[in-house]
Design a protein around this nucleic acid. Structure first.
Lengths: 222, 222
DNA sequence: GTGCAAAGGGGGAAAAATCCCCTTTTTAAC
DNA sequence: GTTAAAAAGGGGATTTTTCCCCCTTTGCAC
């Protein structure tokens, strides 16, 4: 199932099996089948790390964002550090400015919404295969708005540290910050620092919406 | 593109084009291609209504839940009233108790998570085609828990007044209780009463977990 | 009519969350 | 080695949340 050849190797990282399988069919059955082949699939970032332990490595990775265990941001970040030659094409239903900018900063080669046309995906693959970039319309809009004067939207890097992530999980419970501080063996003041940092990064104003963010993005499961 | 025959006609209602296209490939290319054919696709409930204005009608509809404009619940409700013979198979990434129960009450024939195996979908189609039912594992669990004596958290028997429900929705935002009181034209003290009542009924101790309850049980959508 | 429960409202206080400004230590970059 | 960020922690204050006990009105069952 997993073998390299002269074709370009593609890996798919997405937590929904049905979506992965459909994508595989689309790539294997279209006129793209002569240029690409699916090397492997992964359910999330951790799964990807497992499958990247030995060659062959994929040339292009189709990457979802919202995934449990290890999301797309972390996965791309890890990829850039460990496999910088692998090209990442984000395929996500997240269309927020933050998400797009964050991924761009992480160095992905393209950004597609999940509701694009099949032809757009093929174009994106072509562009990336020939060392180019490809961004769907919405991503381009965001990009333009942000390169032009409108930089008011805080370009806070949305990378969450290990501690921040842990704090976020614990804050999505009934524990008080004091109890969280005890559990993490840190000062309540440090915890308060995490809170402020996360409010900023996640663009929320209360613990309630911070918790909702954690759920929405699969950092904690309901 | 749209013609009827002796094969079973399938329609797909989902807001993500790439997912629809992948699903179509899966159905058209597997060993299922001799039994099913895609009649049409729709992006949301309204789109579905448009396409259901004239025959031929689909035998089975694969239905997403979370869609803009008109979501899966509304669409199924409308279908049962206007086209009661059409069988609906929900294919959603929502796995909440409330979502599953709500769809079951609306009379859908099956409920699948988007991360199932392709074979499970085929089984579901088979079951439904032969007038049966099919629920993925998670849906079955929820079903059992709710039919058996799990009286502890029984949200279907949990009565929330109109005001309590409204308060719960508003409390799952960044509004303070004072702002909620203003919005609902009630005293902050009354709001506080709702809060205490809900803490009791939902068995929670903080606003954070109350909000999580609301999400988990589909009272508010993320 | 009495009783009683539900809905709306109040006083007051402790606990928790939120905010702003600041220092030290550690880590990473050049 | 110098510099510059993060990361960890502190002081102190305001706002919000949470809790507990009490009151009135209204509807309705008995």
């Amino acid at each position: 199932m997993r073998n390299a050849s002269q074709k370009l190797n593609i890996a798919i990282v997405d937590d929904h099996n049905l979506f992965r399988k459909g994508l595989i069919k689309l790539i294997n059955m279209g006129d793209t089948q002569h240029r690409y082949q699916i090397l492997f699939e992964a359910e999330n970032g951790h799964d990807l790390q497992e499958k990247m332990k030995q060659p062959p490595f994929p040339d292009i990775i189709l990457m979802d964002i919202d995934m449990p265990d290890m999301d797309g941001y972390e996965a791309v970040d890890w990829l850039q550090r460990t496999h910088p030659t692998v090209k990442v094409l984000v395929v996500s239903m997240v269309e927020s400015e933050n998400a797009i900018l964050r991924m761009l900063r992480l160095g992905v080669k393209g950004y597609l919404s999940k509701d694009i046309e099949v032809e757009d995906m093929n174009r994106a693959l072509e562009a990336i295969a020939s060392n180019g970039f490809y961004y769907s319309e919405i991503a381009t809009e965001v990009l333009n708005q942000n390169l032009m004067g409108n930089v008011k939207t805080n370009p806070s890097s949305l990378y969450l540290s290990e501690n921040e992530r842990e704090f976020l999980k614990l804050a999505t419970t009934e524990m008080t910050y004091q109890q969280i501080a005890d559990k993490m063996n840190l000062s309540p003041k440090t915890i308060d620092g995490y809170r402020e940092a996360l409010f900023q990064k996640l663009n929320v104003k209360t613990r309630v919406t911070m918790a909702l963010y954690a759920v929405k993005h699969g950092i904690v499961q309901l």
